[in-house]
Simulated assay, not measured.
Amino acid sequence: MTVNSRPGHDDSAERPGRPVVLGQNQYGKAENRVVKITRDGATHHIKDLSVSVSLSGDMDEVHLSGSNANVLPTDTTKNTVYAFAKEHGIASAEQFGIHLARHFVTSQEPIHRARIRIEEYAWERIEPSGHAHPDGAAAPEHSFVRKGQETRLTQITFDGTSWEVISGLKDLVVLNSTDSEFWGYVKDKYTTLPEAYDRILATEVSARWRFNWSDDEGEMPDWDLSYEQTRRHLLQAFAETYSLSLQQTLYEMGARIIERRDEIDEIRFSLPNKHHFLVDLAPFGLKNDNEVYYAADRPYGLIEATVLREGAEARIPADLTNL
């Protein structure tokens, strides 16, 4: 009897000739929450990440026979995340992910590809009031409040030769209270939506952008600065575009980023239209002059598109939930 056989069970006839093939597969440890505090005297710095590790390679036998000979335990990948937070620090989500991906592929022969997905949760420093510390020392800077504007994201993929770095954000809610119209669209017998010449435009931005950095010997971008500037251009384009459609606004957001950030070749947006409809106040003898709206959470329009640098190849999946 083999170690994987069950007593009294003859599985000799089950494997040969089975019309079944193992397809693409991976394994790892998901959502490892790691918080790294860097103490610089009385001033502390915080990085708060959720790190998901996914590994693939020569892993057929663990599926076919149950042999774990090529399997690095998922518990080990979890421990590596925490050890690397200490050994390498967390300068940025992207750099931390690159350290991890390189380690898993180069340290374990059966592992051919590593994908590291990271969500970063931002904290804002609570500034001291300026009152002196009782012992005369400078006021401590170790208190933070969780920022709730958006979640920063990154995905690092490494196959031993080539790198792919995709970063982005989700849950960034933005709104323009004017400078938005929607009219001139196709109408059929089921169309009831009135044309709008002054409307609220609001959305919850989910975006991913792909860097053209791929050589670990080359100079890395300043990942944090790149994120800050990309986010800034995204917001400025949203605010400064007189919008005739959410599609137009999406394109202007992507184009502004591609034009101003040389390290980015591709950006994909998923923008739900957070509809705001004027409330009919006529039954109360009141005129609603674009002042009172109700916010409808569903159903909602969903606008999605990719904006590319000329000559670049589209690689970001259409479904951003897969990133």
Score class of each variant (00 low, 15 high):
G17P: 02
I111H: 00
H275I: 07
F104M: 07
R33K: 12
V53E: 03
Y121I: 09
V35K: 13
S226K: 01
G218Y: 04
A91R: 13
E204T: 11
V105W: 06
A101S: 02
Q108D: 03
R125M: 15
E164Q: 15
H88F: 11
R102C: 01
F269G: 03
S243F: 14
N322K: 15
Q229E: 12
D297A: 13
S92E: 12
E119H: 07
R315Y: 01
V20N: 02
D198I: 01
S54D: 03
R260W: 00
T43G: 00
A237L: 10
E310F: 01
M1N: 06
Q149H: 12
K147G: 15
L302C: 06
W209Q: 06
A30H: 10
D215R: 08
Y300W: 02
S92D: 06
K86R: 15
E204S: 08
A138R: 06
D11A: 15
S129R: 03
T151L: 02
L271A: 11
P134I: 11
Y227S: 04
D198Y: 00
V105T: 10
W183Q: 11
D265Q: 12
G66K: 10
Y251M: 03
G89A: 14
Y242A: 10
T77P: 00
S167V: 03
I98W: 03
D224G: 07
D135F: 04
H276A: 13
T43W: 02
H233Q: 05
G57N: 12
H63Y: 15
H44P: 00
E313C: 00
I111C: 11
A122L: 13
Y300L: 14
S54T: 01
I156L: 04
I258K: 03
G57S: 11
K147H: 09
D58S: 13
T74S: 15
V51I: 14
V174A: 10
P7R: 14
D215A: 09
K36F: 05
H45A: 13
A114H: 04
A305G: 11
A202V: 08
L169C: 10
L172A: 07
W209I: 06
D171H: 11
L234F: 07
A101F: 05
E164A: 10
I166F: 04
T43R: 14
E124F: 02
D75K: 11
S56D: 10
G301Q: 08
D216I: 12
L100I: 12
H133R: 08
L72H: 00
G41A: 07
K36H: 12
A138S: 13
M253R: 06
K147M: 08
S206D: 04
I303D: 07
R208F: 13
G285V: 13
G66N: 06
A83Y: 01
S107K: 14
V186S: 12
I46R: 09
A91C: 02
N288I: 14
W223K: 02
I37R: 09
H112P: 00
E304A: 15
P16T: 11
I98K: 05
G301L: 09
E263H: 01
R232F: 12
L234C: 08
R309I: 08
N32A: 11
G97E: 07
Q149V: 07
V35Y: 05
V105Q: 06
N68K: 13
S226R: 09
F158S: 01
A137Q: 14
E141A: 05
L72Q: 07
E31P: 00
K274A: 08
